[in-house]
Design a binder for these strands. Structure first.
Length: 748
DNA sequence: AAGGCCCTTCTTTTT
DNA sequence: GAAGGGCCTT
C-alpha cells in the first residue's frame, strides 16, 4: 500500500481538506475536472490507512457502472486486496444485493429477475390489456413514466393522488403492473430502490444491521439522487451518521428520472453542522473553455456559485461553425477531425463528438464511414437490444425463474416450433385459472407429458409441442448449481439448434451469430459467479457501459453519456433551438435549466479545444426544418469565439437586445413557433404561388362512403397533399388523403 | 401459424 | 427514416 503521506502532498488544500475531513456529514461541491473521483477514492484510502477503518465498514455508492469500475480500479492500486471487503457499486446494484439477502422479508424470492426497460414496457402493455384499456389512449411509455415517477417518490399505487380520470387509470395500471411483477417473481429498476427503502422502514432491525455495518457512507454524483436514493442514504448512514457526499448541482442532468439537485440544498438544511468544501481548481480545461462554461451556467438560479480556475492558460478560442444543413454539419466534423489527424496534430482518441439525441448519430456515422475513419459509438447500437442477445438472455432467465412470463412469451416459439397465438392464449388462461404461472404448466407438461393434468387443455399438437419445450427447460434447470454457466449456455444453443436458426447464410446472420458468441464470451467471464450474478449484471449494465474496443478512434456519444469523461478536442453538434435546448423543455423553466446544465456538461468535457456546430436546416423526421441558433450560443462572450464558415455572419452588427437580423428579439417560444410555421411550408410551398390550401377545416361535418358521418378534427398539407383527420362515430379517428378519399362536406 | 406488407408513430436523455 | 403493430395472404 502506498503511504498516505505521499499522495496527500499531491492534493490541493481543498482536496486535502476533503480527503482528511473528520467524521460527520461532509458535502463536497466539486466543479468539473476538479479531481472529484480522486478525492472520493483517496478519502476511502485515507479512512483505511489513517483512522484505520476496515474496508468492510465502508459503503461507496455511484450512479453508473462506469464510475464504480473506475473507483474500483483506483482503489485496488491504493489498497491492494484490502479493497475486496468494501461495498462499492451503483445504487441499483447495491439494492439488488440487499434485496437478495433479505428476500425472506419480501414478497418475492431471492432468485428474482430484474426487468429491463423493454420488459417494463411489455408489462405495462400487458397490464393495459388485462384491464381492457386502450393503448392508443393511454400510451404505454407515458403510463410507465408516471408509474416510475411515483416509485421514485416512494409512492405506492394505493397512495397515489388521483385528480383526474387519467390519474385513476395510471393508479389501476400501476396496481396491475405490480401484481404482474410479483407473479413473475420480478422487480423493475425502480423497485430495487423503493423496495429497499420500504424494507428498512418496516424492519428497523434489518435497517440497523446495515447501518451499524456502514461506519462510513460515501456517495458520488449526489446531485443526481432522487427521493428514494436520498432516503436510502439516510437509512444506511443512520447509525454512525458519517456521510460524505460529492456532487455538483451544475451537472445535474437526470431530472426526468426523478433526480433532484435540490437534494444538495436539502442535505445542507438537514445537516446544519455539515462541512462544506468547494473544489474550484480545474485540472482539465483551458481558461477559455472554463470562461465559456461559466458564462453559460451562471444564468441558472439555485446554485452555489463556483469560480472555476485553471492554470493551463487561455488556450485556443472556441470554434463556432454554422453549416447549411445537417449533412454539411457532419461533413464539417469529420473533415476537421481527419485534417487534424493527417497533419499529425492530433490522434483519433483525442476527439469526441457529442449530441443531444441518439438519432443524431446516424448522419455522423455515415460521414465517418464515407471518410474511411474509424469511430467508437457509445450506446445506441445496443448490443443488449439485439434480438438474438435478448432471446438467449430470455432462455437463461427462464432457467433461473420459470415464472418469468415476459421471457417465456418472448422465446416460447423460438426457433419456430409451432406455438402460436391460440396455444399461448390457452396457456395463459389455464395458468390464471389454476393460479400458477404459464412456465410452471410448461414444466409440468415437460415432466409428465400426457400424464399431466394440463395435457387436455390444448388442442391439436399444442400439448405435445409445449411438452417438448418444457422437457428442454426441465433439463436445463436440473443440477443448476453444478453446471458451469458456459456449459449451460452451450447446452441451450445445441438443444435449440440455435446456430442453424441464426446462421441463415446472410451477412446479417453472421453478424447475429457473432453477437451470440460475444454473449458466450461474457458468460464465460461469469463462470465462477454463476447464473444469478450474470443475469443481474446484464440487467444493470447498460449499453452506455459497452465502449467498443477500437483504440485511437474518435468517440460519438450523447451529452448524457459524456458526463465524467474528458477529451482533448470536443465537438458539440446540433446547437439549434429545438434540439439543444430540446423543444420538450420550452415550456418549463426547470427543464430549460437542465438543458443548460447539459450543455455545460458538454463544454466542460473539453481539455484543449471546443467546437460548437449547428445547422441552418436539418431533417427531423423526413422533412427539412429551419432552425435558429441555440440560445446558449448567444451567452458565449464574443472574445472567446472564432467563427468559421458561417452561413451568415452570426450575431453580425448585434447590439444588446438585438439579434443578428437586426430586429428586436421576440420571446423565445414565439420565435420557435414561428420557425416551425415557416419551416413546415418552406421550400416548395412558400415559393410557389399555387400553394395547396386545405379544403377541410376542423369542426366540419363530412360523410364517407364506408365510415359514414364524421367530424373533421384537423387538416394539414404535407408534400402538397392535404391530409384530413376525421373522427367517425363508432369508427374512430381516420387520416385520409383529401385527393383520394371521397368526402362529402355536409356543412361548412 | 407464419411471413410480408403497409401504416403509424415517434425521439430526449438511462440505471 | 426506423421500428413496431395490424392486417392481409398463403
Amino acid at each position: 500500500m502506498t503511504s498516505p503521506q505521499n499522495w496527500l502532498n499531491d492534493l490541493n488544500p481543498q482536496q486535502r481538506q476533503a480527503v482528511t475531513a473528520g467524521t460527520g456529514q461532509i458535502l463536497v461541491l466539486a466543479g468539473p475536472g476538479s479531481g472529484k473521483t480522486r478525492v472520493l477514492t483517496q478519502r476511502i484510502a485515507y479512512l483505511v490507512g489513517g483512522p484505520g477503518v476496515r474496508p468492510y465498514n465502508i459503503l461507496a455508492v455511484t450512479f453508473t457502472n462506469k464510475a464504480a469500475r473506475e473507483m474500483e480500479t483506483r482503489l485496488r492500486h491504493l489498497l491492494d486486496e484490502a479493497s475486496a471487503d468494501l461495498w462499492l457499486g451503483t445504487f441499483h446494484a447495491i439494492c439488488a444485493r440487499i434485496l437478495r439477502r433479505e428476500a425472506d422479508f419480501l414478497p418475492f424470492k431471492s432468485n428474482f429477475v430484474i426487468m429491463d426497460a423493454d420488459d417494463q414496457q411489455a408489462l405495462v402493455k400487458r397490464s393495459l390489456k388485462e384491464l381492457k384499456l386502450d393503448e392508443k389512449l393511454y400510451r404505454p411509455p407515458s403510463i410507465h413514466a408516471a408509474i416510475s415517477t411515483a416509485k421514485n417518490h416512494l409512492v405506492d399505487a394505493p397512495e397515489m393522488t388521483v385528480r383526474s380520470y387519467r390519474d385513476e387509470v395510471v393508479r389501476r395500471v400501476y396496481e396491475q403492473y405490480q401484481k404482474l411483477l410479483r407473479n413473475n417473481n420480478a422487480v423493475d429498476f425502480d423497485d430495487l430502490l423503493m423496495v429497499a427503502v420500504r424494507l428498512f422502514e418496516e424492519n428497523p432491525a434489518v435497517r440497523e444491521k446495515y447501518a451499524r455495518r456502514f461506519e462510513h457512507v460515501l456517495v458520488d454524483e449526489f446531485q443526481d439522487t432522487n427521493l428514494a436514493q436520498y432516503k436510502l442514504l439516510q437509512q444506511l448512514s443512520s447509525y454512525h451518521n458519517n456521510i460524505f457526499v460529492v456532487g455538483d448541482e451544475d451537472q445535474s442532468i437526470y431530472r426526468w428520472r426523478g433526480a433532484d439537485y435540490m437534494n444538495v440544498l436539502r442535505f445542507e438544511e438537514e445537516h446544519r453542522e455539515a462541512q462544506k468544501i468547494l473544489l474550484e481548481q480545474n485540472y482539465r480545461s483551458t481558461q477559455t473553455v472554463l470562461d465559456a462554461a461559466r458564462a453559460v451556467i451562471d444564468r441558472n438560479p439555485n446554485r452555489t456559485h463556483k469560480r472555476l480556475f485553471s492554470d493551463r492558460g487561455r488556450g485556443e478560442r472556441i470554434v463556432l461553425f454554422e453549416a447549411a444543413d445537417d449533412h454539411a454539419e457532419s461533413a464539417y466534423v469529420v473533415d476537421t477531425i481527419s485534417k487534424l489527424i493527417n497533419k499529425g496534430n492530433a490522434k483519433g482518441a483525442d476527439f469526441a463528438v457529442m449530441y443531444r439525441t441518439n438519432a443524431q448519430s446516424r448522419l455522423l456515422e455515415e460521414a465517418f464511414l464515407r471518410a474511411g475513419l474509424p469511430y467508437r459509438l457509445v450506446g445506441a447500437q445496443r448490443f443488449y437490444g439485439r434480438r438474438e442477445v435478448k432471446d438467449l438472455i430470455a432462455f437463461l432467465r427462464l432457467v433461473q425463474n420459470p415464472a418469468d412470463e415476459i421471457s417465456l412469451q418472448r422465446v416460447i416459439n423460438v426457433p419456430p416450433r409451432g406455438i402460436g397465438d391460440k396455444t399461448l392464449v390457452a396457456l395463459q388462461l389455464k395458468a390464471r385459472q389454476v393460479g400458477t404461472s404459464p412456465g410452471a404448466i410448461v414444466l409440468d407438461l415437460g415432466l409428465r407429458a400426457d400424464e399431466s393434468s394440463f395435457w387436455n387443455t390444448f388442442t391439436g399438437r399444442g400439448a405435445a409441442v409445449l411438452a417438448d419445450f418444457g422437457a428442454m427447460l426441465n433439463g436445463w434447470g436440473k443440477n443448476l448449481d453444478e453446471t458451469p454457466l458456459p456449459a449451460l449456455f452451450d447446452r441451450i444453443l445445441t438443444e435449440l439448434g440455435y446456430q442453424a436458426y441464426i446462421q441463415d447464410g446472410t451477412e446479417e446472420g453472421e453478424d447475429r451469430w457473432g453477437n451470440v458468441q460475444e454473449l458466450r464470451r461474457l458468460a464465460y467471464e461469469y463462470k465462477e459467479r454463476g447464473l444469478v450474478v450474470f443475469l443481474e449484471n446484464l440487467a444493470l449494465v447498460s449499453d452506455q457501459d459497452t465502449l467498443p474496443e477500437k483504440p485511437d478512434a474518435p468517440t460519438l456519444l450523447t451529452l448524457h453519456a459524456a458526463k465524467g469523461l474528458e477529451f482533448g478536442r470536443v465537438f458539440i453538434v446540433g446547437l439549434d433551438e429545438g434540439l439543444l435546448p430540446h423543444s420538450r423543455s420550452f415550456d418549463d423553466v426547470e427543464e430549460m435549466a437542465e438543458e443548460r446544465r447539459l450543455f455545460y456538461v458538454g463544454v466542460t468535457r473539453a481539455k484543449d479545444h471546443l467546437y460548437l456546430v449547428r445547422a441552418e436546416r436539418r431533417s427531423t423526421y423526413g422533412q427539412f426544418e429551419v432552425n435558429e441558433a441555440s440560445r446558449f450560443l448567444e451567452d458565449l462572450p464574443d472574445e472567446l469565439v472564432q467563427h468559421e464558415g458561417a452561413v451568415r455572419p452570426w450575431k453580425a452588427g448585434k447590439t444588446s437586445g438585438e439579434s443578428w437580423y437586426g430586429q428586436k428579439q421576440q420571446p423565445r417560444l414565439e420565435r420557435w413557433q414561428s420557425n416551425l410555421r415557416q419551416g413546415a411550408g418552406a421550400g416548395k410551398a412558400e415559393s410557389s404561388a399555387n400553394m395547396v390550401q386545405p379544403r377541410y377545416r376542423p369542426a366540419m361535418r363530412v360523410r364517407h362512403a364506408k365510415w359514414g358521418e364524421g367530424m373533421v378534427v384537423g387538416s394539414k398539407v404535407v408534400d402538397g397533399e392535404e391530409e384530413v383527420d376525421v373522427m367517425f362515430s363508432g369508427v374512430g379517428l381516420k387520416r385520409l388523403l383529401a385527393s383520394l378519399a371521397v368526402l362529402e362536406i355536409l356543412n361548412g
